[in-house]
Nucleic acid binder design. Structure first.
Length: 879
RNA sequence: GGGCGCGUAGCUCAGCGGGAGAGCGCUCGCCUCACACGCGAGAGGUCGUAGGUUCAAAUCCUGCCGCGCCCACCA
């Protein structure tokens, strides 16, 4: 097989991916001879395109799954997409509108049909994009949160919770998005600081002289006020409780009530009560028997309950109009502007959320669910990476309030509850023909659909066949790991735990891996308006999927909240793939045959043993890192070993045997290199699946790396002695290179070098003479004292050995003197520091003996080198 | 209002009680028979700031300054 000198990912990736899928490598079934490993993919929205955040999320999951698959687990990565209620409904509705079609005109049924059509046409785009990334998902099991099985699961879940009294219908203040015109759960509201205004105005007493002042940031809501509340112990207002004020704009009488929820220290100590538009006020009103007066339409314009002049205004217009009218009436007491306060925004469309009494909504009662979910984390059934997220998770559950699950939308799982004219209400898994209580056939289904997250929370078990007791479920559930960004820890993760324990009888996963958000190189969020978006598909096209995956892995440290990524880093990933490709070319062309076996240990050279030892160290690091989800450390260990050790030293030191040795030398050397490379490719495969497969096939034929065994530990390969010996040779080479570079010695000029070292050093230089000479461009390398030049040489110090380089014909001695003086100065500074430390009595008496000893040893070394430098300056006749 | 995280080389970060590190960028020298998507060498930091604990602090504690994030029904 020929190997061109540059690796071209685009010519490789599609072909390999198709072959993997065709051979069914990604398909997993329950198998009693294997351990299960399962990850469910957090389903991306069908509306979406794969963005860089997905690429990170998916790369992490693929690394985990591919490694387990190689380790012999029945490794299942279960993919799917989410119907994304609001997002999809808004998107399709907007498209229809562009065609001149209003969704209200075509009606619910036709609209939902249109959404399905849209999904048929575009819903698989994102799946194709996942394939381009190299995801080893089991595509035979691809699911969609609205497909038949999942619809059934959602209904069963709803009915069970309903029958256990964990779902109820109630009239409460909810979060209303006037743009999307639906209710939202608390988790879907994002609080942001906004510059608004705080207006204090005056309510005249209705029965006599006097007034009460109240403050608000939404002055238009005063049109819906039905009372005034003060704290029961507030002496300022004690005489007013039980009396009333008169509404200045519509003349209604508003009672003054006492309620402990009022903070007497804030503002005037009196609160206007707007039960239909504020959750606090709603509760006060319930306790004090005040009416709720709803003044808003669904689009946040004012309705007919307000005085004529304000009807039909939107909330912002009304805010201004009411303020102006109060001003005219002389009732405006104070205006603070800007007044910075926090306002809820819709997580989909960013509109300001209106707390609103919208009529009856469905809620999940969370109190009985959160206890078990908290205990699971406390008992270690659920482990968070990084661990600090566990506390956040617990805090959130602690403060959790009932979950509003009804949405005033058409696209989604319709609430499986029916009503009959007699007022009966019942939930049903199957569509009923008649009322379950009275048999009436005039039944009507609740018009609302469920929160998307209601179906998402079932994902880890609904995708495995729940509520049926399937083999898949018994085998793969609970799943092994959940990988996701921190932004949906509450929205999704915590709810899966509650639902999993309640409905499927166990936690949905054992480990939760929370990663950060991908940012641009400056740490800014990627956004279209900033123009700093890195499109993963574009990157794959230009640099290859491996390059993208490698760069993402290299920064995927779970401790980080922000993960800055630049195109340079992706380019570096491409270079790495190319580097491997070329290393493989060198090895392949020197290796006879396909057998990947190490030579008998008697024929292993010290270089071989050194490289085997380093390879095993790398394997240890990779395993340890991935086990604890430190992907950056795993990627870094592989990069460092393959590039800085295998290529820079391993291949370079092998060259004498490859090019100048006997046939047996050549075969032995290339066998060791090939064996290590192949083994390391398997370690790298989860991170860079394509290039590792492509290269490996050049050595082992068609056998795929996807199902090749994960490298087993080989503790025997660790060889401290070999590392020490070769390490000396490497240090020596580096010292000579530095000398050459410092003095601009022409590269072609071969040096004469003599080394005065101990027996072991002499021995290793004898053994590695060829290698050292080649790497440092040394013409003759002498290792016996008697043969060393008598004088006029530069002296370098390497691990206690002295390296002599005769200067004649190489450079002017004065240049070397210059270098020596610099060294001497640095050395003296170091020595002085060490001396001061040892002169400190506290240090000598209180520090551990080995620390003191180490310091003494170091000082001794420094002194020795210093003396040697002085001696040499003399010898060279420097001033 | 409560809580969390972070301030170390130009950039992004690792180190988390005993000699300041990596990658990228930068400078210099090399088209050396795998690779210029490359090879070799190098420069660059009072470890945010002020105190404290310790023989010893980038590393532990406290205050301050700056940045980011999460949670929250103070009108």
């Amino acid at each position: 097989m020929t190997m061109p000198s540059a690796y071209e990912p685009s010519e490789v990736e599609g072909r390999l991916y198709r072959s993997w899928v065709a051979r069914g490598y990604f398909h997993a079934e329950p198998d009693d001879r294997r351990e299960p490993f399962c990850i469910v993919l957090p389903p991306p929205n069908v509306t979406g395109a794969l963005h860089i955040g997905h690429a990170l999320d998916h790369t992490i999951q693929d690394v985990l799954v591919r490694r387990r698959r190689m380790q012999g687990y029945a490794a299942l990565w279960l993919p799917g997409t989410d119907h994304a209620g609001i997002g999809t409904e808004v998107l399709v509705a907007r498209q229809l509108l562009a065609e001149g079609v209003d969704k209200r005109e075509i009606g619910r049924e036709v609209f939902v049909e249109r959404v399905w059509e849209w999904r048929e046409r575009y819903g698989d785009r994102i799946v194709e994009q996942m394939k381009a990334l190299g995801n080893s998902c089991d595509w035979d099991r691809l699911r969609f949160t609205m497909d038949e099985g999942l619809q059934h699961a959602v209904r069963v879940a709803f009915v069970r919770l309903y029958e256990d009294d964990l779902i109820y219908r109630g009239e409460r203040i909810i979060n209303w998005c006037p743009t999307d015109q639906t209710a939202l759960s608390d988790s879907e509201v994002e609080h942001e600081s906004v510059e608004g205004e705080l207006i204090t105005f005056r309510y005249p007493l209705g029965d006599g002289d006097g007034y009460v002042d109240a403050a608000t940031t939404r002055v238009e809501t005063m049109l819906g006020d039905t009372g005034i509340a003060v704290h029961p112990d507030d002496t300022r207002y004690a005489s007013l409780v039980g009396r009333s004020v008169r509404h200045p704009l519509d003349g209604r009488k508003l009672p003054i009530v006492a309620d402990a929820a009022v903070d007497p220290a804030f503002g005037t100590g009196a609160v206007k009560v707007t039960p239909a538009h504020d959750p606090n006020d709603f509760e006060i009103a319930e306790r004090r028997g005040l009416e709720a007066r709803n003044i808003l339409e669904a689009d946040a314009t004012l309705n007919d309950l307000v005085p004529e002049e304000f009807r039909g205004l939107d909330r912002y217009e009304a805010r201004r109009a009411v303020r102006d009218r109060l001003d005219e009436l002389g009732l405006l007491v104070e205006e603070e502007r800007p007044y910075v306060h926090s306002v809820g925004h819709c997580y989909r469309c960013r509109s300001e959320i209106e707390p609103w009494l919208s009529g009856k909504q469905w809620f999940v009662k969370v109190e009985p669910l959160k206890g078990p979910a908290m205990e699971a984390a406390e008992a270690g059934k659920l482990t968070f990476f990084p661990a600090r997220w566990r506390d956040r998770y617990l805090e959130w559950l602690e403060g959790l309030r009932d979950w509003n699950i009804s949405r005033q939308l058409w696209w989604g799982h319709r609430i499986p509850v029916w009503y009959c004219p007699k007022g009966h209400e019942f939930a049903s898994v199957e569509d009923p023909d008649a009322c379950a209580e009275c048999g009436s056939t005039e039944i009507e289904q609740d018009p609302d659909v469920l929160d998307t997250w209601f179906s998402s929370q079932l994902w880890p078990f609904s995708t495995l066949g729940w509520p049926e007791d399937t083999e898949d479920l018994r085998y793969f559930y609970p799943t092994s790991v959940l990988v996701t960004g921190y932004e949906i820890l509450y929205l999704w993760v915590a709810r899966m735990v509650m639902a999993g324990i309640r409905l499927a009888g166990d936690v949905p996963f054992h480990d939760v891996v929370i990663h950060g958000l991908v940012r641009d190189a400056q740490g800014r969020k990627m956004s279209k308006s900033l123009g700093n978006v890195i499109d993963p598909l574009d990157m794959i096209e230009r640099y290859g999927a491996d390059a993208l995956r490698f760069s993402l892995s290299r920064m995927a440290s779970p401790e980080q909240q922000n993960l800055p990524l630049s195109e340079d880093q992706i380019e570096a990933g491409k270079h790495f793939a190319n580097k491997l490709w070329n290393a493989a070319r060198l090895v392949r062309t020197n290796l006879e045959g396909d057998a990947l076996e190490l030579p008998p240990s008697a024929r292993l050279t010290v270089i071989d043993r050194w490289l085997l030892s380093r390879a095993e160290a790398c394997r240890q690091e990779v395993d340890a890192a991935i086990e604890t989800y430190r992907f950056a450390d795993a990627a870094q260990a592989l990069y460092r070993f393959l590039w800085s050790e295998y290529c820079d030293w391993g291949l370079e030191m092998a060259k004498p045997r490859l090019y100048e040795g006997s046939a047996e030398d050549r075969q032995d050397a290339s066998s060791v290199l090939a064996w290590i490379l192949e083994r390391t490719l398997r370690l790298l495969h989860p991170i860079m699946p394509f290039v590792t497969e492509e290269i490996r096939q050049r050595f082992v034929g068609e056998g795929s790396i996807v199902i090749a065994p994960w490298p087993e530990p080989m503790p025997d390969h660790r060889d401290g002695a070999a590392e020490g010996r070769v390490g000396f040779a490497m240090d020596l080479v580096t010292a000579v290179r530095r000398f050459r570079s410092d003095h601009r010695v022409p590269p072609a000029l071969e040096l004469r070098v003599g080394v005065e070292g101990d027996d072991a050093q002499r021995e290793i230089l004898g053994t590695l003479s060829e290698e050292v000479r080649r790497l440092a461009r040394i013409g003759s390398l002498l290792t016996r004292g008697a043969d060393l030049p008598p004088s006029g040489a530069a002296r370098l110090h390497v691990q206690g050995a002295e390296v002599l380089i005769p200067l004649e014909g190489v450079l002017d001695p004065e240049a070397e003197c210059e270098r020596l003086r610099g060294r001497l100065e640095a050395m003296a500074g170091e020595a002085e520091k060490a001396e001061r430390k040892l002169a400190n009595e506290g240090f000598v008496t209180k520090a551990p003996a080995e620390v003191v000893e180490e310091q003494r040893r170091r000082l001794g070394q420094l002194k020795e080198e210093e003396a040697a430098l002085r001696e040499q300056l003399d010898e060279l006749g420097c001033g």
